[in-house]
Design a protein around this nucleic acid. Structure first.
Ligand SMILES: [Mn+2]
Ligand SMILES: [Mn+2]
Ligand SMILES: [Mn+2]
Ligand SMILES: [Mn+2]
Lengths: 223, 223
DNA sequence: ATCTTAATTTAGGATATACTAAATACGTGT
DNA sequence: ACACGTATTTAGTATATCCTAAATTAAGAT
């Protein structure tokens, strides 16, 4: 039974919002998808009463994914992230332009297409934004990165992941040189405004970043 | 105004069935799309009353494309054929497996995606089946090929185009060595059953093909 | 002219997915 | 216990796309 684009996007959204198995609220889903809350309620009720059910739904308590729902969320997410990677690596897209394209393509490619691009890319583990790509058997690789915002001087770290898909944000930090794989050293953390002063490896000049940026960038601390 | 997948497929179908501007019947569209005739009537009425209208619709007389309808048909067809070519050339698909995949992807790729794969392929003029690919400004390249069935011995010709998308048919003729670009010589045409005996360039043994095959293969006669 | 049949359209419905407006429940502070 | 504001659900619609069954039209045969 092939599921609709709409349902696949709901599942992806619930997966993304449901950290640590906490239930996800109707409103949160509505905001993320740009849909009226009432419409989301309707869709959640339908998804909960399919067989097999895709979500556990408790009125006014929010939803969590069933095993089946999570499987499809991961399947769709694997499509999405492989596509983003393919668009950047093989078709020369810039990393701020791939999200929209992948979000349309993810719903229509076959399993064969998925296999072929994965292979062409050498079975990558992360997409251009550093997001982990679910494995072919649909488990999500765990990564132990933390927000750049949580670092203290004089810690050193590698940028792992950028958790914000908005093209202007991505263009901004790319211009600064902040991309997955880049090493950096925290020089100072200012009180109250929590700005970070830091230097990227290979760059002379220093950077000062506010929390609006540092909370969206995940890094791995270098021992 | 973005048109739906369904409408794009209707337009492609009307384009394909409407040789020389002859009106296309409801039934023909229904058969080709695997949809009930009544549903087709409904859709045709809607398409005729959009602004701008996509088709000219005369009750019980069949439909023809308007300029706008033809534009979209060619746009979709360009997507389809570029995708088929890309799948074969860059992702290693076999030519009998690309149609279905392209028929889903054609509706969701952006103009940017279209440009990029066209460029990656060197702006090809034909797809893997030899079908001409509409140019970027949406004109259909004219080709002067004729059915293999119309040849007489001892004419020689180059295979140009295979006008049948069914995978078993494509696998069959590929196994025989009949692909676009292959040269051949007609040795004999038998009366009544219209079988053709012929030899492919580079092959030792001869082939005997019935009209079910030779009417679907288009060739260009070598002077 | 009328009959028969095939093609087509109309009528009535179903499903998926959205919307707005109105009703209801929940949680919090009094 | 209660009232208020927010989150959520219900009710009632709308649109797109399909379906089946019944009605209508056109075209050829008698
Ligand atoms: Mn999507
Ligand atoms: Mn990503
Ligand atoms: Mn299609
Ligand atoms: Mn083709």
């Amino acid at each position: 039974m092939r599921l609709s684009h709409a349902i696949q996007d709901y599942l992806k959204t619930i997966y993304a919002l449901g950290v640590e198995g906490r239930p996800v609220s109707t409103t949160a889903i509505a905001r993320r998808l740009g849909i009226a809350p009432a419409s989301v309620t309707g869709m959640l009720q339908r998804m909960a009463s399919m067989s097999p059910p895709l979500i556990h739904y408790r009125k006014r308590r929010g939803v969590t994914l069933t095993e089946e729902g999570e499987r499809i969320a991961l399947e769709t997410l694997r499509h999405h992230r492989l596509l983003e990677t393919y668009l950047v690596v093989n078709l020369g897209y810039s990393w701020d332009a791939v999200h929209e394209e992948a979000c349309r393509l993810e719903h229509v490619i076959s399993e064969d297409f998925e296999r072929r691009i994965a292979e062409a890319l050498g079975n990558p583990e992360r997409d251009p934004h550093g997001d982990p790509i679910p494995t072919p058997d649909l488990t999500m690789p765990q990564s132990d990165s933390c927000p750049l915002a949580s670092l203290q001087p004089p810690q050193r770290a590698v940028v792992r992941r950028v958790c914000n898909e908005e093209p202007p944000f991505l263009r901004h930090i790319a211009r600064l040189g902040l991309k997955p794989g880049v090493r950096l050293e925290v020089l100072e953390r200012s009180a109250f405004d929590h700005n970070l002063r830091l230097r990227l490896e290979g760059h002379e000049d220093e950077l000062i970043l506010g929390p609006a940026v540092t909370e969206r960038i995940y890094v791995e601390v270098i021992s």
